[in-house]
Nucleic acid binder design. Sequence first.
RNA 1: GGGUGUUUAGCUCAGUUGGUUAGAGCGCCAGCCUUACAAGCUGGAGGUCGUAGGUUCGAAUCCUGCAACACCCACCA
Length: 915
Amino acid sequence: MFRVRLGDELEIEEEKIYATWLENHCFTFSRDQKYDENFIFVLPPPNANGELHLGHSFGYTIMDCIGRFQRQLGKNVLLLPGKDHAGIQTQVIFEKLLRDQGIDTTTLTREELYKRCYEFCIDRANYMRSQEKSLGLGADWNFELFTLDPRVSEIVLDTFIKLYEQGYAYRAERIVNWSIVSNTSISDIEVEHVEKPGTLFFIVYPWSDDIELEHEGDNYFDLEPDDVLNDAFLVKKLMNPPKRALIKGRKCVLHPVVKKLKSEEFLVYLPEVDLHKGITVATTRPETMLGDTAVAVNPDDVRYKNLIGREVTVPCINRKVSIIASPLVDPTYGTGALKVTPAHDFKDFEIAKQKNLQIVQVIGKDGLITQNGGKYCGLTIQQARQAVINDLKEEGLLVDTKEIVHFIPVSERAKDVIEPLVTDQWWIKVESLKEEALRRVKNKNELEVFPEEFRSLIIQWFERLEDWNVSRQLWWGHRIPAWYQNGDVISVSREVPDNASQDPDTFDTWFSSGQWAYSTLVAHNLLDLTACENWSHNYPTHLMVMGRDILFFWACRMILLGLYRTNRIPFKKLYFHGLILDEKGQKMSKSRGNGIEPKEVQSKYGTDVLRLSLLNGFTPGRDIRFGFSKCEPWSRFLNKLYNCAKFIKLNSGPETATNIIHPLCAELIRSTRTKCEEYKKGFEIFELSSVLDNIYTFFWDTFCDWYIEISKVLLKTPFALEQKTALKSAFEAILFMFHPFAPFVTEYLHTNFLGEKMLLAKKRFSDLTCYKLEVANSDYDMLSLFEIVRLLRRFKQFSTDQVDFFVEKSFNYEDDIVASLSRCNKCQSSDCNVEILVRTKKVFIKIRDIPVLKKELQKRLDAVEAQLERIEKLLKSDFSSKAPYEVVLKEKQKYEQLKIEKHELENQFASISGK
RNA sequence: GGGUGUUUAGCUCAGUUGGUUAGAGCGCCAGCCUUACAAGCUGGAGGUCGUAGGUUCGAAUCCUGCAACACCCACCA
């Protein structure tokens, strides 16, 4: 926990303040209230295997800020905290930890590993909870849950059992993304594509039988390409395009399919291929040829059309395979001939399914070549690749290589290269589930998304969603409740059948976190799943907040599973925040070394500065840049707040006025109330950043720079008591409004400087003094006071001599206030040499420095004339007839006012001329 | 290849449904130790709102093209 230093002498201990909040049950949720009185939101559970980073701090700050505001409204708020077991990620981290400690993981039983890892996670969770508390997170800790908590797992398993019973969960052998390092399958969404250099090998698969090739003459027309598409040339559409062309020195043939690019049509010319020895394929992974069961070409590809059905021999393994046609083959890429390895490539698997090809697995789950790989059996992928290349070279079948840059799939968690493999897995059939999800997500009444643009991302994701592989070959996670006898599933149930063995696999982490929105509520008896079928009442939660990076991982899955089990989207409002970038706009990461730890900021500036600088200037869904330079202004702000509190304390006593009569004091109360209302409105639509901006300006510019300065005069008059009351109640409201943003310092000042007995964290709108005071009506024009002071300040600034003034019709002490703020002296009107109309008031000024006066008057006159000219032009145009009446009227009124001002100024010029 | 977002002052960003003089913080210039605060106060300079068109009486704001940057998705071997 952190101490924050304010000014020279004040230190605030955040930990003590947090303890006080807990002691006073500031964050305690009471169960017995109605939906409308509650505000419940389930917090995203961070992975319990490390510590919180700045991104977590950002999210929590937003959530806590909203939670505190909802309490101010009088709501019964529950922020429900938790931690995620994070399957594969934790297993990777934990196994490495054991290895680093010299422990051989293979010597431990599964139960032992699980137990130790559970303890590890609980330990991390404890640490992370202390971090969450240090941020000021006002969660009800009695409700905290872990995703592997028995109360939660029970629900997760039940969901799977239900899915199985209703035919949504099934087992199938299919090609999946396989991580050799983690020894498990992973879902598409956990695969990243990383750009890396690689080599494209051109390999000849010789004809199995003798073949006679047709020869079609040598007429080639010279053509200039307009563009290049992979290995083919694009030429703008011609009237009678030649069948054969020489482009950039290469013999090409015309492809019968026209390519459309940006609404323009192009002819495609494919480079001719050498077919004498055999058919040439291109691949970056030569070792997979051991599992080739076909060579595929595009059915429209004229180069190969006549060869479909012929046989070639796959070198190294000497397997005879046919040339088949598939529209999935891109004729412009490589040679246009694709080696088909169904067991180790997604597209090839698809082709094999359509064409009923044999599937030969040559790479095992351990990453070694299988027995199907013949003499290469037992080699690693890299070794096999080298061996195959050497053998091909020897036989003269490797005809070309090309260095390319391509995207290779890697595991998001372990970062190792993904090998597509055919394995037996559990799947969730998503077809009908996603239809329902799409229908509901498109309905804006059912789900509000902040920012709204993100709704289309959710829709697109669902549209593309295919069956979900939910089994993982890991020991860390919810073990799948499927039971086998002789390799067959005999039951899926929480009951243990006799003589059966349990599926060794666990669920994909997202299968459990996808249920978090309701599993947490059910675990705490806030929701009854059995009542969900035909219910009409509201879903218990109101809001879900998360980073935009887990939109697909988490938000979509919660919608999918939430609809399945509760018949509702488990949140009414879904709010996404952006990610934290460094000052240069780059992602923070350990490898770049540009990350900032939350505690670095907290110990240097205090938690409130961290919160304020994160919340300042952000827009939902948009990433923000963060660096220490963002903290400085907020550090100054807290110092200002502290000094302001000091001033208020110095100028308040036990007595208070109940009736505010002086127009300036009344005006202060009124504008404070207005700010409170704006604050409320802004928060209700989650405009946290603009709310902060608004109250910042109110505090600094309006309250400190004007009202406190004004008070320095009024405090010496008989209006002192009501001035003190007004200042104190306005400052109370200011602390109240800043409290969700900067809870620690505001709480401290509230108790120690305002001397309030009630905790600020417990204060509601209805407790604010500014709403209770009786305030006299007045039509006082605050702006004219501001204008007069600013005018005099400018004269004073530029003038070499002193400036005196007299304000017409000034009310109680107004002239003293003007004198104090402008540092000019008041005098009698008769002593003055110039009079200026400021809004509704006339100010008489005595100024000896005539050139300065003239210059200033001229500046005003120029501005007025420019305005007049502008409006005249405007009124002469179609504006008067076509613009709405109110808008025209506003301009006309402005025009009249300006004309009077101009007249006055001209008179002044006349009176000083010659002086 | 598909999609989304961004482009406003020297820097970091606001700018709500189009309304006519575009805002803040930091930085810059000038002047102030005015007894809450020099981490402050006062005054000031600085922007043809990426570009080319269009709609409109009126565009930073709406539409279209273009450019640059960023991110996400995708099974080009």
